[in-house]
Design a protein around this nucleic acid. Structure first.
Length: 576
RNA sequence: CGGGACGUAGCGCAGUCUGGUAGCGCACUUGCCUUGGGAGCAAGGGGUCGCCGGUUCAAGUCCGGCCGUCCCGACCA
C-alpha cells in the first residue's frame, strides 16, 4: 500500500503549454513524467510503475512463446556496426562518440549486431537452434524530431527480440509465434490495434508487420479492407493495375501543343483545359544514387517515394529541385512531360488506364494534349508507384480500402540472412554442412505503448487505465482525515486489500475532497473506495468505477470482499 | 535540415508596439475557517525577465549574435 501523502505524484491543474496530444498532456498532469531535454524524460514513481507493468506483460508473453531474456549493453563498439555496414548506412540518428583512448562507440538504437555477435560465438550446431533472445532495455535514437512526450522520445525503453532458426520454414514458424505473442500482449492492455503489412526500412529484411494502435493522433496512416483481412501501412499498400478509367475519345489524333500560360499545378492545368485531373499525366523527376529518373502517373494520384525507390532498386531517391528540373526538361517545374524527355522513364499503372491524356510539353507555358501512352512515349516499365487512397480497390479481394491513423507500438521483421551474412553467423547442419542462420527481429516500444493506451483510454477528467497497467488498482479515499474514526476505518480497509495482493493508493493527504477526487480521476485508477462522513456514520462506504462512473453503497463489513470481486472482474477483462 | 512560433517565479500567462522601481492567477509557507468534486479570509516566501554583446542617463522592452523549446515536413518502437 502506498500512502499518497509522501508519494511523489505531483498532479497539476493546468496543462503545460508544450503538450499537444492527450497522452503527453495527461502524463505530465498526472505526475507520471517530467521532461529533462527534448525527447528525454524522468519517469516519476507512478509513471515507472506503469512502464514496469507493461514490461511484465511483455515478459510473460515472450517467455510463454519460448523466448529467453538477456541484457545487452547500451554502449556498443563501432567495429560491430562497421562490420554490418550500418555504421555508414544508419545516418545521424546513431549517436556516436569516443572513449578516452579515442575508440569509437555508439549508443545502441537497436541490437542486431550485438546479438548476432553473441550468437555467432556461442552457437555452432543445428542442435542449438532455434533460439529466441530478448531484452527490455534503454535505447537511444537521435531523432530528427522528438515529439508528443513518450510517443517519440530520443531515449526510450524497448523490448527487442531476435530469433535464430536453421531455415526459412522454421523461421516462418517463429515469426508466427511472435506475431501471436504480440496480439496477446496488446489485447491484455485493452488496445484496439491492427497488424499491418509494412516497409522494412533501416532494419532490412524480407517482410514485416507493424502493430498499429488505432488513434487520431497517430503519426502513421494505414489502410484496411472493408471486406477481407488485408491491412497495410500506406507506404506499403499495393495499388494493383486495373481497367481503363478514361477510354479514348474517338477523335484522338497525334499530340497537339496548347498554350497554358502560368498554369503549373494539376488543378490549374486541368481547370484551364477543362479536363478531369486524372487525364493529366504528371511527370516527376527524381535524383537517385544511380542517376536521374522520371516517373509518370495520373494527375489524380500522389507518388509514393518508397515504391519508386523499391521499383528502381536504388539506395535513395530525392525529388529533383527546381534547378535540376530546368536542366533536364528545359522548362520550369510544372511543364515536365514524358514525350521527348531524355531521361530514364518509368510509369505508374495509373498511366496505362489513360487512353489519351495531357502532359507538360517540356516548354514554359505549354502542355500537350491527345497524348497516347505507349504510342507517344514508352516507359521502360509500368509499376506500382503511387500512394493508396481512401476508396481504392483492395489488392486481395473486391472490397475497398479505408484509411485510418495509427500509432506504431510494435514491429516484427523477417530478416532472412541479412545480418548472419554480414556478420558470418553460421552453424553446421546434420550433414556437417555450414549454413547461414535465418533471423527475425521483433520490437515493442514500452513507453509508446503506455502513451498509446492513454490515447485510446481517456476522458475529460483524465486517464482511464485498463487495470492491467494501471499504476494502482484501487484508490482508498477518506474524505476528511481529521475524522479519526473514518480515517482509521479507511486505513484498515486499505491495508486489508493490500494484504490480499491488490495494489492500493491510500489518499491520506490533508486535502479537501474535491482535490482528492480530481486527482484520483486524473491518475486513472480504475476503482475508488470513498469513505464519506455521512456514509461512515450509517455504516457504509462507496465503491466507484472510474470508467463508467457507477457507484455502489456497501456496508463497511462487506467492503473488502466487494472491492476484491470488482478488481477480479476487471483483471479478467484484461486476459487475452 | 527547411518552414512557423515561443522563451518573464514550480505551472499558466500579462507587461515588449510607445525604454523609466517586475506583475496577475494557480501552486507553496503560516494562521483562522471549511470538509462529497480543484472553497474562503489574512499574512508571507519565491525572479541573474534564456545567454552574450551593443545602443542609451536608464533595457524584460530597441539592435546583433548564440542557445533552448514547441508546431508543420523527410525517419521510426
Amino acid at each position: 500500500m502506498i500512502r499518497y501523502s509522501g508519494y511523489l505524484m505531483p498532479t497539476t491543474k493546468e496543462t503545460p503549454s508544450d503538450a499537444e496530444v492527450a497522452s503527453h498532456r495527461l502524463m505530465l498532469r498526472a505526475g507520471l513524467i517530467r521532461k529533462v531535454a527534448s525527447g528525454i524524460y524522468n519517469y516519476l514513481p507512478a509513471g515507472l510503475r506503469i512502464l514496469r507493468k507493461v514490461e511484465t506483460i511483455i515478459r510473460e508473453e515472450m517467455d510463454r512463446a519460448g523466448a529467453q531474456e538477456v541484457l545487452m549493453p547500451a554502449v556498443i563498439p563501432a567495429e560491430l556496426w562497421k562490420e554490418s555496414g550500418r555504421w555508414d548506412a544508419y545516418g545521424k540518428e546513431l549517436l556516436r562518440f569516443r572513449d578516452r583512448a579515442d575508440r569509437e562507440f555508439c549508443l545502441g538504437p537497436t541490437h542486431e549486431e550485438v546479438i548476432t555477435d553473441l550468437v555467432r560465438r556461442e552457437v555452432h550446431s543445428y542442435r542449438q537452434l532455434p533460439l529466441n533472445l530478448y531484452q527490455i532495455q534503454d535505447k537511444f535514437r537521435d531523432e530528427i524530431r522528438p515529439r508528443f512526450g513518450l510517443m517519440r522520445g530520443r531515449e526510450f525503453f524497448m523490448k527487442d527480440a531476435y530469433s535464430f532458426d536453421t531455415d526459412e520454414e522454421s523461421a516462418a514458424g517463429t515469426y508466427r509465434k511472435m506475431y501471436e505473442a504480440y496480439c496477446r500482449i496488446f489485447r491484455r492492455m485493452g488496445l484496439d490495434f491492427r497488424a499491418v503489412e509494412a516497409e522494412t526500412g533501416a532494419i532490412g529484411g524480407s517482410s514485416s508487420h507493424e502493430f498499429m494502435v488505432i488513434a487520431e493522433s497517430g503519426e502513421d496512416a494505414i489502410v484496411s479492407c472493408d471486406r477481407c483481412e488485408y491491412s497495410a501501412n500506406v507506404e506499403k499498400a499495393e495499388c494493383p493495375p486495373g481497367g481503363i478509367d478514361f477510354p479514348s475519345p474517338p477523335e484522338a489524333g497525334s499530340p497537339r501543343k496548347v498554350p497554358t500560360p502560368g498554369k503549373r499545378t494539376i488543378g490549374e492545368v486541368s481547370a484551364f483545359l477543362g479536363i478531369d485531373p486524372g487525364l493529366l499525366i504528371k511527370t516527376l523527376l527524381f535524383e537517385t544514387d544511380k542517376g536521374d529518373v522520371a516517373v509518370a502517373l495520373s494527375g489524380r494520384h500522389e507518388v509514393n517515394e518508397v515504391k519508386v525507390k523499391n521499383s528502381l532498386g536504388v539506395e535513395w531517391v530525392k525529388l529533383a529541385g527546381e534547378d535540376r528540373v530546368r536542366e533536364l526538361t528545359g522548362a520550369p517545374s510544372g511543364y515536365a512531360g514524358p514525350v521527348g524527355l531524355r531521361v530514364r522513364l518509368l510509369a505508374d499503372h495509373s498511366v496505362r488506364r489513360i487512353a489519351s491524356g495531357a502532359t507538360g510539353a517540356n516548354e514554359r507555358d505549354a502542355h500537350l494534349v491527345d497524348v497516347v501512352p505507349g504510342r507517344d512515349f514508352r516507359p521502360e516499365a509500368y509499376a506500382d508507384m503511387r500512394l493508396v487512397e481512401e476508396g481504392d480497390r483492395c489488392p486481395r479481394c473486391p472490397g475497398s480500402l479505408r484509411v485510418s491513423r495509427g500509432i506504431e507500438v510494435g514491429h516484427v521483421f523477417r530478416l532472412g540472412t541479412k545480418y548472419s551474412k554480414s556478420l558470418s553467423a553460421t552453424y553446421l547442419d546434420a550433414g556437417g554442412k555450414e549454413r547461414l542462420i535465418v533471423m527475425g527481429c521483433y520490437g515493442i516500444g514500452v513507453g509508446r505503448t503506455a502513451a498509446a493506451t492513454i490515447e485510446q483510454h481517456h476522458d475529460q477528467d483524465g486517464i482511464l487505465w485498463p487495470i492491467s497497467i494501471a499504476p494502482f488498482e484501487v484508490c482508498v479515499l477518506p474524505v476528511n482525515m481529521k475524522n479519526a474514526g473514518l480515517r482509521n476505518e479507511a486505513e484498515r480497509v486499505a491495508e486489508e486489500l493490500s494484504g490480499e495482493g491488490i495494489e492500493v493508493l491510500f489518499d491520506d493527504r490533508e486535502e479537501r475532497p474535491g482535490i482528492k477526487f480530481k486527482d484520483a480521476d486524473l491518475a486513472g485508477i480504475p476503482l475508488r473506495v470513498t469513505f464519506g462522513e455521512k456514509n461512515y456514520e450509517a455504516g457504509f462506504a462507496e465503491i466507484r468505477d472510474r470508467k463508467t462512473g457507477e457507484t455502489e453503497r456497501i456496508p463497511l463489513a462487506g467492503i473488502t470482499r466487494r472491492v476484491r470481486t470488482a478488481v477480479e472482474e476487471k483483471r479478467k477483462e484484461c486476459l487475452p
